[in-house]
């Protein structure tokens, strides 16, 4: 009898125990969630204050009215965005496309693409050279590549100016050698900007390319040589496809900062050959049109995002073709 009664009561006890345990578990779970939010607070704070917050301010400003002496007036206006692409004639109010802005957009994109191409052309052999040195000397070469990073960008840009200006090193040498009679105008041209940006951003191409090449299995190259591939074909069919991730990463690292470059076009391009970065600065400074500046900043961001989406698509397509 005793045993029977026990066995009948046991399930009921078990149920209450489970419920109590369940409540305990959910309380523990809630505490766990609280703690995990607390622990991620610093990261969230940084993301909010340094990333999405400022971006949100820029977005809001782009839809406000420009103040007379800079700053903004808190009333909604589409004028900022309107002026990014369109211009209104001050006399008869006819609307036309903002040629000046489009020219600057186009120059920015074109110079950034060219900078990327120059960096690939110079960076690929450089990275290859470093990757094929002995393990010890590689670090020395990498060290040399990164040295310019330690110098202020402005100083480096002025150094380039010293080289290419009319009384600069290049012209002096060419004049003295009798190659030219008059100094060549290099400063304040697109070429000068290109030269400066390629110089400044080259390490950003070399480093990811080197990382990809260092991981490259050189036995694959031997295997391709063995299978009747000439040097050029080995490069095209084996090396380039295998270091492609590094090539794409380097291109993005060069293209994006080139697009928003400010110092280099300002110093080497002068006031005439503006790029997007200079145009934006102009709106916040002399232009006193903060909403337009904000809208231009977001336009730059959009161009970058389009470029990145383009990149992600390529990567995804490659990943898909591998499956």
């Amino acid at each position: 009898m005793q045993g029977q009664g026990d066995s009948a009561a046991a399930p009921a006890r078990a149920i209450t125990a489970r419920e109590g345990k369940g409540a305990l578990v959910s309380a523990a779970r809630r505490r766990e969630v609280r703690v995990s939010w607390l622990l991620s607070a610093p990261a969230l704070l940084v993301l909010l204050c340094a990333a999405s917050g400022p971006l949100l301010i820029v977005l809001v400003y782009s839809f406000l009215t420009a103040g007379d002496y800079g700053g903004i007036v808190w009333s909604f206006s589409g004028e900022g965005w309107f002026k990014v692409f369109l211009a209104r004639d001050i006399f008869d109010d006819t609307v036309s496309i903002a040629d000046a802005h489009l020219t600057i957009f186009w120059r920015s994109v074109r110079l950034s693409l060219l900078t990327t191409l120059i960096c690939i052309a110079l960076g690929f052999p450089t990275a290859w050279f470093i990757a094929t040195r002995s393990r010890e000397s590689r670090n020395i070469w990498l060290f040399l590549i990164t040295i310019p990073f330690w110098t202020n960008l402005l100083i480096r840009t002025f150094a380039i100016m010293e080289v290419i200006r009319s009384e600069g090193i290049v012209n002096s040498v060419l004049l003295a050698a009798g190659v030219i009679r008059q100094p060549i105008q290099i400063m304040y041209t697109d070429f000068a900007i290109l030269l400066g940006m390629a110089y400044v951003y080259l390490p950003l191409m070399v480093l990811p390319l080197y990382a990809a090449m260092e991981r490259l299995d050189f036995r694959l190259i031997e295997a391709a040589y063995d299978l009747y591939a000439s040097r050029r074909r080995v490069l095209r069919r084996i090396v380039v496809p295998l270091v492609r991730p590094g090539l794409i990463a380097g291109s993005i690292l060069v293209f994006i900062p080139s697009l928003g470059a400010y110092v280099t076009p300002r110093v080497l391009g002068g006031g005439k050959n503006m790029m997007l970065g200079n145009l934006i600065e102009l709106q916040f400074g002399q232009g006193r049109n903060w909403p337009l500046g904000a809208a231009l900043s977001l336009t730059l961001l959009l161009i970058v995002m389009v470029a990145l989406i383009f990149y992600v698509r390529i990567v995804q397509k490659e990943a898909a073709s591998r499956e």
Partner: peptide
Amino acid sequence: FQSYALFP
């Protein structure tokens, strides 16, 4: 090759 060296 010892490592086969197949093109990945």
